[in-house]
Lab assay of single mutants.
Amino acid sequence: DLSALRVEEVQNVINAMQKILECPICLELIKEPVSTKCDHIFCKFCMLKLLNQKKGPSQCPLCKNDITKRSLQESTRFSQLVEELLKIICAFQLDTGLEYANSYNFAKKENNSPEHLKDEVSIIQSMGYRNRAKRLLQSEPENPSLQETSLSVQLSNLGTVRTLRTKQRIQPQRTSVYIELGSDSSEDTVNKATYCSVGDQELLQITPQGTRDEISLDSAKKAACEFSETDVTNTEHHQPSNNDLNTTEKRAAERHPEKYQGSSVSNLHVEPCGTNTHASSLQHENSSLLLTKDRMNVEKAEF
Rank of each mutant, 00 (worst) to 15 (best):
I67V: 06
L137R: 13
K221Q: 10
N143I: 06
D184N: 07
C90F: 12
Y104F: 10
N243Y: 14
Q93H: 08
P57T: 00
E254D: 01
L164P: 03
A107T: 10
P141T: 01
P144T: 05
S197R: 02
K222R: 13
S228T: 13
Q80K: 09
E302K: 14
A279T: 12
E28A: 01
Q11K: 10
Q138K: 08
G56W: 03
S280R: 06
M17K: 00
L5R: 09
K293N: 07
L158I: 14
L137I: 10
Q59P: 05
D231E: 15
S216T: 00
G199E: 11
K300N: 08
K54R: 09
E202A: 14
A253S: 05
M127T: 14
T68I: 04
R77I: 13
N297T: 14
R135K: 07
R132C: 01
L164V: 12
A16G: 03
N131I: 03
A101V: 06
S264P: 01
E32V: 04
I30N: 07
K259M: 07
Q73R: 08
S280G: 13
L136V: 13
K192R: 04
K250M: 03
C196W: 04
K19T: 03
E120V: 03
E28G: 01
N15T: 09
R165G: 04
V232A: 04
R77G: 15
P208T: 08
K87T: 14
E22K: 02
V190I: 12
R295S: 11
Q73K: 05
G274D: 14
N191S: 05
L289F: 08
C26Y: 00
C43F: 00
D1N: 05
Q147E: 14
C46G: 03
L158F: 08
R255G: 11
K55Q: 03
L51I: 06
E110K: 06
I41V: 06
N15Y: 15
G128V: 03
S150T: 09
N267I: 03
Q171P: 09
E140K: 11
S288R: 11
V177F: 02
G274V: 01
G128C: 03
G56E: 10
V265I: 05
S241G: 05
N242Y: 08
R169W: 07
S176Y: 00
P172H: 08
C63S: 01
R77S: 07
P33H: 05
N15K: 03
K250N: 09
D200N: 13
R162I: 00
E8D: 10
L72I: 01
D184E: 07
E9A: 06
E74V: 13
E32D: 08
E254G: 02
S103I: 01
C225F: 11
E285K: 12
P272L: 14
H116N: 11
I25F: 00
D218A: 07
L146S: 08
L151F: 03
S176P: 14
S280N: 12
H40L: 01
F42Y: 15
A101T: 10
I20F: 06
E142Q: 11
Q125K: 13
G210E: 15
K19E: 02
L203W: 07
E9Q: 03
Y104C: 06
L164Q: 15
L5H: 12
A4D: 09
S219A: 05
I30S: 14
A133V: 05
S280C: 12
M127I: 10
P144L: 11
G97C: 01
I30M: 00
C196Y: 02
K118Q: 06
L27M: 03
Y129N: 05
Q53L: 12
P33R: 00
D1Y: 11
K54T: 09
K54M: 00
S197N: 10
Q147L: 08
Q53R: 01
E83A: 10
A220G: 13
V198A: 09
K54N: 07
E299D: 09
E236V: 04
G199V: 13
D200Y: 06
L48P: 04
K49T: 12
I25S: 00
R174K: 12
Q239P: 06
I41M: 08
R132G: 08
D213N: 01
R255K: 12
K87Q: 10
K118I: 09
C60S: 01
L217W: 08
H269Q: 02
T175M: 07
E202D: 07
N131K: 09
P240S: 04
E148V: 06
S145F: 09
K31Q: 02
E99A: 01
E229Q: 12
I89L: 03
K64N: 03
S126N: 07
F42V: 01
H40Q: 00
T277S: 00
L158R: 05
N157D: 09
R251S: 09
I215M: 05
N191I: 02
C38S: 00
N65K: 11
V10G: 02
E148K: 09
E148G: 06
S113C: 04
K118R: 08
V298L: 08
Q80R: 05
E22Q: 01
S263N: 11
E249K: 02
R165M: 12
K192E: 10
L158P: 14
E32A: 02
R295G: 09
K109N: 04
I123N: 13
E226K: 04
M47L: 12
S35C: 05
K19I: 01
R251C: 14
G182E: 02
E258V: 02
L146V: 10
C38R: 00
G97D: 04
T233A: 07
V121L: 12
C26W: 00
G262C: 08
S219C: 15
Q18E: 15
E302D: 11
A193S: 08
E32K: 02
K134I: 01
R212M: 10
K87E: 10
A107V: 08
F78V: 15
A301G: 15
P57S: 11
V13I: 03
L117I: 06
K108R: 15
L155P: 14
M17R: 00
L51R: 01
I67M: 04
V7G: 01
C90S: 12
C225Y: 15
S35F: 15
E99V: 09
Q125L: 01
D213E: 15
K192T: 14
A16D: 07
D66V: 05
V82G: 07
N52I: 00
A224G: 05
A220V: 10
R162T: 10
S185Y: 07
E299Q: 05
S79C: 00
I20V: 01
V232L: 08
S150N: 13
S126C: 06
K55I: 07
S186F: 11
L151I: 05
I41K: 00
P272S: 14
A91V: 00
